[in-house]
Simulated scan of single mutants.
Amino acid sequence: MILLRKILFPFAILYGLITAIRNWFYDKGILKSYSFSVPIIAVGNLSVGGTGKTPQIEYLIRLLLPNYKIAVLSRGYKRKSSGFLLAEYSSTAETLGDEPFQLHQKFPTIQVAVDANRKNGIEQLLTLQNKPDIILLDDAFQHRKVKAGFYILLTAYNDLYADDFILPTGNLRESRSGAKRANIIVVTKCPSTLSEADQTNIRQKLKLSANQQLYFSAIQYDEILYSETENRTVASLLNTDKLLVAGIAKPKPFFNHLQDGNDEELEFPDHHDFTEIDIQTIQKKSKNKPIITTEKDFVRLKGKVNAAQLFYLPIQSVFLSNGENFNKQINNYVEQSTRNRSVS
């Protein structure tokens, strides 16, 4: 695989040139970007998957929900529907996509919508009778047709964009220079013990602009495992034989957190659509043992696997330090945008 990626280096240069020209056209106004009066926060990355966008979106929802009506707009990756779709009671993971459906179930008071055309999606949301005060754009850093008011760029601790290269030789969707569009950069999935010296080294490697802020976050696992029939503490099942199932990018930390010597692991591709054969494999390997999966996988496995066996483990994004500064920066942007909107 590494050899193949090296062989494809000329294609990476070509792809990088195409994306650079596209970005230049948007920067110069040759290609039009559309702005909206409503505060819009875009969360995304430069690399392909695995940076923790959904936990970051959830963090923003928890931060803003007490004071504002929130909508989340996603493209709905791998959904079996098209066009604009607003989540409702009859929505499923298949119609919305697994991550938007997870947000819809977890935060029933917010609006969750999907549309590959983010401009159209925003326009549709703003025509609603109960239109949102704030729109969070999920995975929209490269969606230049919409100009968000605030950009949060995520990069994983073990896979910094500064150490990566453009597709297909590396995993970057565009050049590292694209990071300059971000207001905030968050290094995600950090060890909770990350030292100040290591943080300084990463800061120097990322070469932030003077107007950019850098934060470090970690994944915090819940102490409770949830199912449709009962809840159990993680501690109560750690020494129990179980089957661990994950269809996410980079599942090793999830497995390591729960792994006991006799556990079995089943790994599937990110956003995997579980087939009947997959379900049969899961049930056969579980042998009536508890099946523990991620929250994203749970919404796709629920109703297909024995409910009494199937548990999921929620996660949250937590800042190692200066979380109050992050909160203040987000709240200041929203308050200022809302104030400007009411004046205009």
Score class of each variant (00 low, 15 high):
F319H: 14
Y68A: 03
R300H: 07
N331V: 11
Q280R: 14
I110T: 00
A179Q: 07
T200V: 06
D159P: 01
D133L: 13
E123K: 09
K106Q: 14
I18R: 00
F268D: 11
S74K: 01
Q316I: 12
K289M: 15
S47K: 05
D164M: 05
I152R: 03
E228Q: 07
E276H: 06
I185F: 06
P10I: 09
P290Y: 11
N256T: 13
I185Y: 02
F9S: 13
I41S: 04
Y221M: 14
L172N: 14
N211P: 00
L96E: 09
V112C: 03
T275N: 04
I248F: 05
V114M: 01
R181I: 13
I18F: 12
R181W: 10
A42D: 02
Q105N: 12
S192M: 09
Q142K: 07
G170A: 10
C190P: 03
T275A: 02
L128G: 00
I202Q: 06
T200S: 11
V114H: 04
K289Y: 15
E265D: 11
N201D: 11
K6Y: 14
S33D: 10
L313C: 08
I184S: 02
A179G: 11
I202A: 09
G323M: 10
T169V: 01
L63H: 13
I7Y: 12
H257Q: 15
D138N: 07
D133V: 13
R173T: 10
L126A: 07
N117H: 08
I224D: 01
M1V: 11
D98E: 10
K180V: 13
V299S: 02
N171V: 10
I202S: 05
K289I: 14
S342P: 02
D98R: 00
H272A: 02
Y68M: 04
D222Y: 05
I30N: 00
Y77D: 03
S236V: 04
G44Y: 01
K78W: 14
I282K: 01
N45H: 07
T200P: 00
L225Y: 10
K119D: 10
L60C: 02
S195K: 10
I184H: 01
P55Q: 15
N117P: 02
P39T: 07
Y215S: 05
L313V: 04
L128C: 00
I70E: 06
A197Q: 13
A210G: 02
A71H: 04
L320V: 04
T95A: 13
P66K: 03
F165R: 15
N256L: 15
F101P: 00
E267Q: 13
L125R: 04
L31N: 14
R5I: 01
H271A: 06
P253E: 03
F298N: 03
L258Q: 10
L237Y: 13
R173E: 09
T275G: 02
I135A: 09
E223Y: 08
L153I: 08
D270M: 07
D115N: 15
A93V: 03
E324M: 09
N331Q: 15
A20E: 01
N23P: 05
E324H: 11
I2W: 03
V187Q: 01
Q142E: 12
C190N: 05
V38C: 11
I202T: 06
N256W: 09
P191K: 10
L208Q: 09
Y226M: 08
K250F: 15
I135P: 01
V305Y: 05
F141L: 01
T109V: 05
L160P: 07
Y215Q: 06
I61A: 07
N262R: 12
G76D: 07
A218M: 10
L64P: 06
E295D: 15
